[in-house]
Design a protein around this nucleic acid. Structure first.
Length: 417
RNA sequence: GCGGGCAUAGCUCAGGGGUUAGAGCGCCUGACUGUGGCUCAGGAGGUCGUGGGUUCAAUUCCCAUUGUCCGCCCCA
């Protein structure tokens, strides 16, 4: 029995790790440009934390959580999303007392028990931003701006942000009723289970993929016409800000999001390169959540971006990321010369020059082949002839040119190249 | 949770109820003593996912199982 990685997980192999690192670096950089600081929270949390925040009826809570009981009888869950965990830490450590504001970013694995398919895994990774303590839609705009700036920085162009407003509680309640009334004749054609599901959360009909429902929803009332006047004004101003920031967006009343905690603004960036899992990121405002978790009433907005999906889109768009380049490969000629070659390699590394050498005493030719395969920029030949003169031969692969360099000047000479 | 496709070399795949299962790429070695990439020659590498069944005979047919891919659901 050979061991395999668990279903829905993936190894990031050396051939791909440079892409991950590049993406992580880009994200950290963008987050830093906006003054966000990293928060790292545990891989698992009390199960109740997620039940509270994501909504009992959401699929994530009702069937996708990796929950277990530990030896002390605690009910724990591998985090299916990061916002709840981050907010718990914020409240616990009082990082955002009333009146203050806080900008956080995170890079984290998330876990959901689902059937894997394109763009969907049981262990996935998310980048995210959270902006706490700012009620103004300027905060929503900043989050969306940072998100699009990040995607641009990794080479994804022409992405459109889909935005919507869910309003406050009043608007949502009256809209749900109106939507159910509108769809009544359709609902009577469904079996009880499907019907109950929709009645619990009618908004789900909006992003359904059932052609009949899509057709029906075309003439459904829009939530936008149910918004409280204050929410309407907010949403209008948000659009002005986005326009001013030259961010492409579309208002899409069908964007409702899968987590129940959103209020007012919600948004997504979608890509048609991802098959059925089109959402590249999702976010929105969650003004009631911190209070719900026992903190002070605090307005907040955030975004979660799928790392694997970003990588998939990058790949589909043909964006290549250069790996770490090797500068020098030391080629040793003759068995007795190995200690000298090692010493030279050591000196180069201490000078900050990436250097490899073959440790298995292969033939000269094999060593050169290996150097080429590793993508080395230079080969340094260490042979008895050269060493006797206190020199080594430096060969530049791209030009094939060779020069003799005194050993004591080697690091200096290579560094300036 | 539901439906469908796939599982043969490191990778991408071909093949076929019956001797030593193939290709391309990759890998290793060599082409006059210390010069890579290109070319040429040689070589290594597979219990044909796992378990069971049918058969004189299964890697090939059937069933199950696991994995994988795609769709539904849902979402990052």
């Amino acid at each position: 029995m050979k061991f395999q990685n668990p279903r829905g997980t993936a190894d990031v192999l050396p051939i791909d790790s440079a892409k991950w690192q590049a993406l992580e670096n880009s994200f950290r950089k963008t987050a830093g440009l906006y003054g966000y600081k990293e928060i790292r929270t545990p891989t698992f949390e009390d199960t109740e934390l997620f039940q509270r925040t994501s909504g009992e009826t959401s699929d994530i809570v009702s069937k996708q959580m990796y929950s277990f009981e530990d030896k002390g009888g605690r009910n724990l869950t591998l985090k299916p999303e990061v916002t709840a965990s981050a907010l718990r830490a914020v409240i616990q450590n009082n990082l955002c007392p009333t009146g203050s504001q806080l900008r956080l970013y995170y890079l984290s694995p998330i876990f959901r028990y689902e059937r894997p398919q394109k763009g969907r895994f049981r262990e996935a990774h998310q980048f995210g931003l959270e902006l706490l303590g700012v009620a103004s839609e300027l905060a929503d705009a900043e989050i969306i701006q940072a998100t699009t700036q990040f995607y641009r920085s990794i080479g994804l162009k022409d992405l459109t942000v889909l935005i919507n407003s869910l309003g406050r509680e009043q608007a949502r309640a009256s809209y749900r009723t109106a939507l159910l009334e509108f769809a009544d004749s359709y609902l009577t054609t469904l079996d009880l289970e499907a019907r109950a599901k929709i009645e619990k959360n009618p908004l789900r009909m909006l992003d359904s993929k059932d052609p009949d429902v899509i057709e029906l929803m075309k003439s459904a009332p829009s939530i936008l016409s149910f918004l409280e006047s204050e929410s309407q004004l907010r949403f209008g101003r948000l659009q002005e800000y986005l326009t001013a920031a030259q961010i492409q967006f579309e208002v899409r009343p069908e964007i409702v999001r899968g987590l129940d905690y959103y209020t007012e603004t919600v948004f997504e960036v979608q890509s048609d390169l991802l098959g059925a899992q089109g959402a590249l990121c999702g976010g929105g405002r969650y003004d009631g959540l911190i209070e719900e978790l026992g903190g002070p009433p605090t307005p907040a907005v955030g975004v979660g971006m799928g790392v694997e999906r970003a990588l998939m889109v990058q790949e589909a768009a043909g964006i290549n990321v250069a790996g770490n380049e090797l500068k020098v490969f030391v080629v040793s000629i003759g068995e007795g010369i190995m200690p000298t070659a090692q010493t030279i390699a050591l000196k180069l590394r201490e000078a900050g020059i990436s250097t490899m050498l073959d440790l298995s005493c292969k033939s000269f030719k094999s060593q050169l082949r290996m150097a080429d395969k590793e993508g080395a920029q230079f080969a340094v030949f260490v042979g008895e002839d050269e060493v006797a003169k206190g020199e080594v031969t430096v060969k530049e692969f791209s030009t094939g040119k060779q020069v003799e360099v005194p050993i004591e000047n080697l690091a200096q000479a290579l560094k300036s190249q």
